[in-house]
Computed example of a mutant assay.
Amino acid sequence: MSRNSIQLALLATTSLVLVLIIIYAAANIKSPSPDQHNEELRAAGIIALPKPRDIPTLSFDSSNNEPIVTTELKDKWYLVYFGYTYCPDICPTSLAEMRQIHRLLTPQAQQQVEFIMVSVDPNRDTPQQLRAYLNFFHPDFKGFTGDMTDVQKFSNALGIPFIPGDTNQPGYTVDHSGNLAIISPAGQHFGFVQAPFKIEQVAQQFNRLVQQAK
Rank of each mutant, 00 (worst) to 15 (best):
Q212I: 10
H102K: 14
Q110A: 13
Y86V: 08
G178L: 05
E39V: 10
S33L: 04
M117K: 03
P50Q: 08
K76M: 08
P185R: 10
E39P: 07
Q112S: 09
I199P: 04
D35H: 08
I22V: 14
L41R: 09
D121K: 03
P52V: 07
D150F: 06
Q108V: 12
V17L: 12
T14H: 06
K51M: 10
P32S: 15
F115P: 00
A48D: 08
T145Q: 13
N64Q: 15
I160G: 01
N156E: 14
V113S: 09
L95Y: 00
M98P: 00
R3G: 07
A157T: 12
A96C: 00
V80E: 01
Y78L: 12
C91F: 03
D89Q: 07
S94D: 13
P161S: 12
N179S: 15
M117P: 05
D140C: 08
Q7W: 14
P50G: 05
P32L: 15
F136D: 07
A181E: 03
S177V: 08
E97I: 01
R131L: 01
E40K: 15
P170V: 08
F162R: 01
T85E: 04
I183K: 00
V69C: 14
D166I: 00
P196Q: 05
L18T: 09
V69R: 14
G165V: 02
Q129V: 14
G146R: 02
V120I: 13
V151R: 02
T70I: 11
V113A: 13
Q100M: 00
D54F: 12
R124L: 03
Q204E: 12
Q36D: 15
S119P: 02
I199E: 03
L10V: 09
Q201D: 06
D166G: 06
A27S: 13
P185I: 04
I116F: 10
E66T: 15
Y172A: 02
S184P: 04
L8G: 09
T167V: 13
G178I: 01
H176W: 01
V174Q: 00
S5I: 09
S62I: 05
V69Y: 10
V151K: 05
G191N: 06
F197G: 00
N4Y: 13
T57E: 15
S184E: 09
N123R: 15
Q204W: 00
E200V: 06
K214V: 12
P139Q: 13
L79T: 02
I90W: 00
A27R: 13
D61G: 07
H138S: 07
G165A: 04
R3P: 00
Q111R: 15
F190V: 10
F137H: 03
R42V: 11
M148Q: 09
Q129F: 12
T167H: 01
T106D: 08
V151I: 11
Q204I: 07
L41I: 14
V151P: 02
I21K: 03
A44W: 04
E97P: 04
Q152G: 04
S155W: 05
I116D: 10
K76V: 02
T106M: 08
Y78G: 06
F162S: 01
R131P: 01
L58V: 10
A26H: 14
Q152F: 02
Q152S: 11
